[in-house]
């Protein structure tokens, strides 16, 4: 995986966790979980964001605002964001050196 994509995936997982703590926090706390480290987690999210190239980061922000999720998995050669076909050439070796975008919706593509 492209190192920048790896960071973007980690960023999205972190954003998901922060959102979940905000939205389902009460439910989770009701089960006994404590979320005392939230501020620390937000800080590590900001630290992580500084390692991402500004162009990728602004694209991530734009997509998150538009779709909720910026990075989506490719399953059975389909972008799971918009279900457009992703040519298998996208996975070829030459393409591993760049962060791939769906040509149809622009979401960042991830092969799980």
């Amino acid at each position: 995986m492209h190192p920048q994509l790896q960071l973007l995936v980690a960023l999205q997982d972190l954003d998901e966790m922060i959102n979940e703590t905000a939205n389902q926090g009460t439910e989770l706390e009701g089960l006994g979980f404590k979320h005392g480290g939230l501020e620390e987690l937000k800080k590590s999210r900001e630290d992580l964001a500084t390692k991402i190239e500004p162009g990728h980061l602004s694209w991530y922000k734009r997509l998150t605002g538009k779709f909720g999720h910026a990075v989506v998995p490719v399953v059975s050669n389909l972008c799971t964001g918009c279900f457009a076909n992703i040519p298998s050439s996208f996975v070829s070796k030459t393409n591993e050196n760049k962060v791939q975008k769906c040509e149809s919706c622009g979401r960042l593509l991830y092969w799980p």
Binding site: A10, D13, L14, M17, T21, F33, K34, H35, G36, G37, L38, E40, L41, S44
Partner: peptide
């Protein structure tokens, strides 16, 4: 990475 972050939020 996800699990480690989750533990940082609280055990």
């Amino acid at each position: 990475q996800m699990l480690t972050s989750r533990e940082a939020l609280g055990s």
